[in-house]
């Protein structure tokens, strides 16, 4: 259990590390070029690991709906935006605002898609996040 908890924390550290390295690359090139290298190098890496481990095409991937294949282009904009923002508002603010955006849009998506949920918890959670964004935004640079 402690081993898996450490892995989960490390995964979060690597999210931030990746954004910092991409942000540094964007300082030398551009945010979009940084996003391109992030995807290409990641692709080569995943291909190598998948070839070593096997099972890349396991399951029924052809049965997936067409829109499930749209994650790549969205990810390009996501990585480019993160690379651009991190040098301007810092790693912590970038991470915090992205988390806030993910959480609140997740609630909206859940409600639109009719996922069951506790309305009180959703309201309190969103209210706390909005309050936090308001506090963060009032900071001097």
């Amino acid at each position: 259990m402690i081993f898996f908890a450490a892995l989960a924390i490390l995964a979060g550290v690597l999210v931030s590390l990746s954004r910092q390295i991409n942000g540094r690359l964007a300082l030398s090139t551009s945010a979009m070029e940084s996003s391109f290298w992030n995807h290409l190098v990641g692709l080569v890496f995943i291909t190598c690991v998948a070839l070593a481990v096997g099972g890349l095409f396991a399951g029924e991937p052809a049965q997936a709906p067409w829109w499930a294949y749209l994650g790549g282009p969205v990810g390009v904009v996501f990585i480019a935006a993160g690379s651009w923002l991190i040098a301007r508002i810092g790693a912590a603010q970038t991470a915090l605002m992205i988390i806030a955006g993910q959480m609140i849009s997740g609630v909206v998506l859940d409600i639109i898609m009719g996922a069951p949920g506790n309305m009180w918890a959703r309201t309190l959670g969103v209210a706390l996040i909005l309050a936090g964004m308001w506090v963060a935004q009032g900071r001097k640079p």
Binding site: P61, P65, G75, Q93, G101, I104, S105
Partner: peptide, 24 residues
């Protein structure tokens, strides 16, 4: 912009998670 970027992440989780439900 950072807040909107987080919104993109929700869609990536939805799209890529759906792919994972069908494939590896």
């Amino acid at each position: 912009a950072a807040f909107g970027t987080g919104g993109l992440l929700s869609f990536m989780v939805l799209f890529n998670g759906t792919l994972a439900a069908y494939g590896s």
